[in-house]
């Protein structure tokens, strides 16, 4: 995974709550068997509207998405994270994320930042008034900085460390191979098996 330390970029203010993963990347895109090439599918239905915020030239090249509460609800599709990254987003800010989406984002180095609704509103107002405003998402200091905004955010220490170092979860877990084998040796025999091997 690519490491994340700090990122500064312009913002796409997305004034919508309950942005579900079917909106982020519609199901017909999920037939692809790769992790890339999803950028054109990002918010595909909404992008048909020329007024949609992502279509506004002023926000072109922005790398931080600021959205309403309950971002990423619904399906577990990791394609939603890949689509945001393929499009160029490095971080997403919201007052609440769906659990599976949040987990997927942190495993891919897309930083998802939870800030209070008032701060989200402040960032919207700021970047709607002046789309050239830059926001810094600093994982080292656990802060979001913008003109007049200095907001601390929480992220559990372990997830933060993995992101900062860009660590591969599977390699970390495989260090515990002995513990896994020991657990397996003590599993009850009545547990289900899909086949005899």
């Amino acid at each position: 995974m690519e490491a994340f330390t700090t990122h500064t970029g312009r913002v796409v203010p997305l004034r919508r709550s309950n942005v579900d993963t079917d909106q982020i990347i519609p199901a017909h895109w999920l037939k692809k068997v790769t992790r890339d090439g999803f950028e054109d599918g990002l918010f595909e239905a909404w992008r048909k509207d020329p007024e949609f915020v992502l279509n506004q030239p002023a926000h072109s090249g922005a790398t931080v998405l600021v959205a309403g509460s309950d971002f990423g609800t619904g399906s577990s599709r990791e394609h939603a994270v890949w689509a945001l990254q393929n499009y160029g987003f490095k971080a997403v800010i919201s007052s609440r994320f769906a659990d599976i989406f949040r987990g997927n984002s942190l495993k891919n180095g897309l930083l998802t930042v939870v800030l209070p609704p008032e701060t989200v509103e402040r960032l919207w107002e700021l970047t709607e008034a002046d789309p050239t405003v830059e926001v810094t998402v600093d994982l080292v200091e656990r802060k979001v900085l913008a003109p007049g905004v200095d907001a601390a955010f929480e992220l559990d220490e372990n997830a933060r460390w993995r992101l900062l170092e860009g660590l591969d979860d599977i390699s970390l877990t495989l260090r515990e191979a002995d513990s896994i084998a020991e657990y397996e040796a003590n599993r009850p025999v009545h547990k289900p098996r899909t086949q005899t091997v």
Binding site: R77, E78, V81, I100, N104, K107, D169, I170, T173
Partner: peptide
């Protein structure tokens, strides 16, 4: 779970 976790 997501695909990264499927692999895990």
């Amino acid at each position: 779970i997501g695909t990264s976790q499927v692999e895990h």
